[in-house]
């Protein structure tokens, strides 16, 4: 007799706060606004989740929490590559799209806030980018 398989889609939201460092009001507002925008973007079909962080806080919302560490590392490396490229080529890189064979990642640097959105390759990342940076 065959066994029934139950597919589950899990969304985990992780809030990390460091109260020892007090962010500026402006930064906090920006972070909150970005979080609100990302929450809406997260509902777009094909979007797999997002990571938003600054020096003091982080929000991670992924449909596949098992890949949290890998996604976080990729986000961090992309942000570093943006910085590195900016210095080496005298550019002010603030956005990045990394396309993989299965998914793609849109990375955006907004001041001290860094965010990454993971999505299927068919999703229009320009449209998503415009929602964050109109």
């Amino acid at each position: 007799m065959g066994r029934k398989k139950i597919a589950r889609s899990t969304t985990a939201t992780v809030m990390v706060d460091d109260s020892s460092v007090t962010p500026t009001l402006e930064g906090n507002q920006g972070f909150s606004e970005l979080h609100a925008s990302l929450a809406k973007i997260g509902k777009i079909p094909g979007v797999k989740g997002y990571i938003l962080k600054n020096l003091t806080s982080a929000v991670i919302d992924l449909k596949n929490p098992a890949k949290l560490v890998e996604y976080a590392l990729l986000t961090s490396e992309v942000a570093d590559a943006c910085d590195e490229s900016s210095i080496l080529f005298d550019l002010n890189i603030t956005r990045a799209v990394v396309t993989g064979k299965k998914l793609k990642m849109l990375g955006i640097i907004l001041g001290e806030n860094k965010l990454a959105i993971f999505m299927e390759k068919t999703v229009n990342h320009t449209d998503i980018s415009d929602r964050i940076l109109p």
Binding site: E70, S85, I93, R95, T99, K101, L103, K104
Partner: peptide
């Protein structure tokens, strides 16, 4: 690090 998204194909860093 792009192994997690299926392996690297391309990337664009821009402003």
């Amino acid at each position: 690090r792009s192994e997690t998204i299926g392996g690297f194909e391309s990337a664009t860093f821009y402003n």
